[in-house]
Design a protein around this nucleic acid. Structure first.
Lengths: 329, 329
DNA sequence: CTGTTAGCGCGTTCAG
DNA sequence: CTGAACGCGCTAACAG
């Protein structure tokens, strides 16, 4: 394996000079830069990121922490897009990404988790799907031992940034469209997981809408589960004239229940997953660019890891698939 | 950060002794083992895998190479299960996993790829979804520069193992069941991707069945795309009395086409993805345990990396969801 | 602006 | 059976 030493020898300079050139440090003459780069080319040198990580204490090793909700497997698509968006962007930016799942740390204390991550020379975290109930993660973030970027969880401190879609506005918009199109008054809102950040934001959105349009709003928590949404629909849909769901998966559950009940109610989803295409029916939904959000999170982490301060960033979202079709078979 | 040095001091032994205890080397007295382990406990020592990787030349850093087919996003579930199965198992076994996608290496030569991976101190590869067309990977494997485990691609050499479901038999079984249940004679078989290993294995299965049962077999390649399967069905289903698909996604495409054509034909899928539950109709399909396959692959790689020889392993598969329901709405 | 040197944390001889 | 010493490839002061 060709090392930085070989490059130095080949270019006729010192090791540290090569290192400086590679890492874009100042105070290197154009001439030596050229020589070094040429040597790198000729020898096909690829820097060893593991050695860099060991040496540097400020390296580009980053952990991807994913909340894989095994109860609702159908959201795999979202997680998958998060993963690929993050990994692709990270590769582009020269960061090393290690993927983890929340479940791996279930029985661990914040201290144990910190030790574990530090032992991996990890200095940055990207966290997806955290809720208020994830005590360990909450503490981990509060400790500020790592630079972190949260996706769709609005926590922000000196070492922590947050990247999110404006869930409140999105829920407001998509629900409004559905309700106006169908001229409804009595909303059954199937919310997500209690203590989930996105759930609460979306709730705020629907509440604002209800107030503004003077709607009757009935709220139930479906825990992002198709089955629960289905049961809720069976139980409460009859007296309502529209069903707004806090996720596409729950919207599927609702639609199926309606079909079995053989009644028609407009249904409104949220995420915009491809899966919806297989559910047989169309409905209003947001289209979120999960991979894009993820890529932004990586950029944000990079910024943080290079001395930036934590900040919040709200992403744009677009509303698509606004065509509404009859739900009855 | 507490290092091996601190442990050594705390236990009153030398650094190398601690290392030996940690890595289960022989020639350490029970007494010192005990002392060391106690020190590890007391100090909450977690070995630094990065330093180990740099030092050892034979470390546990493993790359997960995934073929994310962007054309058919709906198989995210399968990829997701591969990822989580592998990562969980790897964590259990103390391996470091770095996730990559084929697309990242599209424009690279085998040499570049080798350099890149070596620069990451990676010594093992787990590869999902490789086909005969992936020249770079084929060469990479042939070069035997890395220990590798292929999932569902039957290549095997001294440094390469293969872990696969018996696709041929599975296709035979599931199709047979469907055909017997519905008493069919004229099969439309929608195959997967040309030059894909699994595609060819499954093709062999259906051919064997056709021969045995004296069926008329008409084969078309659907490239694992729902749309193509749909088009194929529109075009050829009329004169056939059963449609056997080489993947669930294509089966969905076929079912929808049939629905629109308003004709009934039994449809047979393959993978057993949850998604099928949302397609509205039931059909015969295999149920593969993707996470389990993945975990086996990790074990196999571990075995290889510790001096084992490449070997092929066929997993069991189970057939479920054998209930067939009328496809007409 | 460039080169020398000391670690990062661990694995691995090889004397004792 | 134990421990001192070296090196993995690189970064980061510090001299020059």
């Amino acid at each position: 394996m060709v090392s930085i030493k070989d490059v130095a020898k080949h270019a006729g300079v010192a090791i540290s000079t090569v290192s400086k050139v590679l890492n874009n440090y100042p105070n290197v003459s154009e001439e030596t830069k050229r020589k070094v780069n040429q040597a790198v080319e000729e020898l096909n040198f690829v820097p060893n990121s593991v050695a860099a990580a060991l040496s540097s204490k400020q390296s580009g090793r980053v952990a991807l922490l994913l909340n894989l909700n095994t109860k609702t497997q159908a959201i795999d698509e979202i997680v998958m897009q998060y993963i690929s968006g993050a990994i692709n962007k990270a590769m582009e930016m020269g960061l090393d990404v290690i993927t983890f799942f929340f479940s791996m740390f279930e029985d661990k204390s914040p201290e144990e988790m910190t030790r574990y991550l530090k032992a991996q020379s990890i200095h940055g975290l990207i966290i997806y799907g955290m809720s208020k109930d994830d005590k360990v993660l909450q503490e981990l973030i509060a400790s500020q031992e790592f630079k972190a970027v949260l996706v769709d969880a609005p926590i922000c401190n000196r070492n922590t940034s947050s990247v999110w879609v404006n869930q409140e506005q999105a829920q407001y918009d998509v629900a409004k469209k559905t309700i106006i199109e169908n001229n409804c008054k009595k909303v059954l809102y199937i919310a997500g997981k209690r203590n989930g950040y996105v759930t609460e934001e979306r709730l705020r959105g629907i509440k604002r809408l209800a107030e503004e349009m003077n709607l009757s709003l009935f709220i139930k928590h479906g825990e992002f589960s198709e089955l629960q949404a289905r049961n809720i629909t069976f139980r409460y849909a009859k007296n309502r004239d529209v069903i707004v769901c806090s996720s596409d998966l729950m919207a599927i559950g609702a639609m199926r229940a309606l079909m079995e009940m053989d009644i028609f109610r407009p249904v409104c989803g949220f995420d915009g997953i491809t899966l919806m295409g297989y559910a047989g029916k169309q409905m209003n939904t947001i289209r979120q660019n999960f991979a894009g959000i993820s890529a932004t999170a990586v950029e944000e982490l990079h910024y943080l890891m290079n001395g930036g301060e934590g900040r919040e960033r709200i992403l744009e979202y677009t509303i698509e698939r606004m065509k509404y079709m009859d739900i009855i078979c």
